[in-house]
Design a protein around this nucleic acid. Structure first.
Lengths: 197, 197, 197, 197
DNA sequence: GATGAATGAGGGTTCATTCAT
DNA sequence: CATGAATGAACCCTCATTCAT
């Protein structure tokens, strides 16, 4: 009756999806979204060009799927840090968690940074993505507010910029970047800050 | 027909070059490098497509010219800050100078950030560009070293990341970004840092 | 598993064939042959794409099967008119029969008209189809000849054109077309013609 | 100053436009719109694929341009017939004029008939085209009304169907079709009709 | 008998670039 | 110095068709 069992088909599909997403992410990370053609993705993944369109409506939808999954992963990773009482400790954990996330999803961040400045691409990714950064910033703000810092919104913006700056520089030259030391130096700076607050 | 002097010709050429570069920069900043076509540039500048190739070898060389000129401008703007004796004052001036530069050359930074994560593009821009950021970082490092900071290289990397992070977030949403307050908050953090050093 | 008889199997096949043909005809009639994809047909018929190839060698063979069956139907419908002695009555019956056929097989005629002007498609349908119209015309010719009309071949060609013209205009806007009145007006014109012959 | 004179450019453009339209019309007439690829047109016209898009926004706009020009030509040809006082003479002239038009613009009519049953194509051609046939029919109606015929709308519809039917059959097999005789037979039928009216 | 994942050729279209004038 | 007509490679995507199961 059935040619393949539903399970077999599901596995087949999942494997292909994964393969496409994996190679696409790597290529987007390496060459940027625009400079990566569907041909390149198919070739890298060892499939035909047409197959991509069995799984994703378009190249842009593929990018969106990639981002949605990664944003989810990233958010989940982030949540684990929110458990310190001391603000100094909280900041330290946040920064370390953020950097661990970047380390873990390096390709995502590279792809993300390569696309972030392209409004025409971002616009088509739907309303979810842009909101994402705001959410992160607001979360940081709530931490600073709980810690009694005087300008929580500004402080959140600063910390977000620091994390993002370090992350992007690390994404640009991961092999040579002294991430550990940079992270600790950042954290130390916040220790001083809270000490004199 | 009209016997123009060599100088007049040169000036005319420079004027045309500048016009093309100006419009190209604006378009790259707004749409990103890949999403900006040569046709768009020519149309915006009010010239024919072919003429662009009279002044620039290719679209990429145009981008390179844009960046070279801007990097020069940026470096010049930077130099003005190096005149304080007190390290705290120096940092403050540096950060403020950096942000003034970003404000002044907003289009350049947007274009730069849109292209920075695309190695395939960067590679063709020649060896000059990549070096640029290193130079900046080294300059910062020398400041920290003069100030007797213990890890000057790391501190330079951190400060660079901070400035770059703020700059990029500002480039992304210039109208809404509280640049003033962020800058002052960053500076204040360094005051604490030096105070306890 | 279930030991179906050969006859049951045959019936099942025929049923599936009919289902596919029915939905294909409707889609061809609505969108035209080229603009109807195999996917659309499969989806409309509620089957998999692959299954179509179990019943028809190709999309073109499906079209051919459609036409062959319809031509047969149409011819059968036509035959019923050939029973009047008076030429005037015969013409009237012929025209009415033709229009009844068009009404009854509207989708076929729409599909047919959408494809008739595409020699590249027609060519692949085999030699049967083109002959069909000739047959019809010859039959008309024999009627006129029996009626003693002076130029039976030309008259057959004219009547065929009239019928085909009306049929196509009706196919194009069935809801608004005054088919009844048009048919009667055509018939009346032939009454005059025979009256003065 | 100017590389080519404006006139030279204009001529160059006109020649290319004409060349493209000519070959496109021939191919659309021969293979139908869908079965004619832009590649085929370019190859037939001896130009690059890209050039077509210098003159027409899309393949569909090319078709539209073709039709607009032809409809204009056809309408102009039609007007010349409207000068007889006797209704019988008028009909005769109309039919003959219509057939002359078809003869003269055979490729247009073939292309037109190949596309007429495809709503998806027609829809994109804008609102002008569908109106066209209505206009023709209304004009015929006004003739019949002036002639005092009892059902002018119906008679117009009939005559339109006759003309269209003959035209299409002629378009299908121009070489073998006895157009002259058919036209005269049609006209004669209308002579009888008016004689007994 | 039936599925649907997979293919690959070809579709329409864009775009950086060239070159005759 | 300047034009813009012309090119051709590459782009994203669709589709009829195949085949392992």
């Amino acid at each position: 009756m059935s040619p393949r069992t539903a399970e077999q088909n599901h596995e087949l599909r999942e494997e292909s999806r994964r393969k496409i997403m994996k190679h696409a992410m790597a290529l987007f990370a390496t060459h940027g979204y625009d400079q990566t053609s569907v041909r390149m993705i198919a070739q890298s993944a060892g499939i035909s060009q047409g197959l991509m369109y069995n799984y994703f409506e378009s190249k842009e939808h593929l990018l969106l799927a990639l981002f949605q999954r990664s944003v989810q992963d990233v958010n989940e990773s982030f949540v684990r840090a929110e458990e310190a009482d001391d603000p100094r400790e909280l900041i330290a954990q946040l920064v370390r968690a953020a950097m661990a996330v970047v380390r873990e999803h390096l390709d995502f961040w590279r792809a993300w940074y390569s696309v972030r400045m392209q409004p025409s691409v971002i616009a088509k990714l739907g309303a979810d993505l842009p909101v994402w950064t705001d959410t992160t910033r607001q979360q940081l703000e709530s931490y600073f507010r709980s810690a009694g810092v005087s300008q929580p919104a500004i402080e959140a913006t600063v910390l977000f910029a620091v994390i993002d700056g370090v992350a992007q520089h690390y994404a640009l030259e991961a092999e040579h970047y002294p991430l550990e030391e940079v992270v600790e130096a950042v954290i130390e700076k916040y220790q001083h800050f809270f000490a004199t607050q």
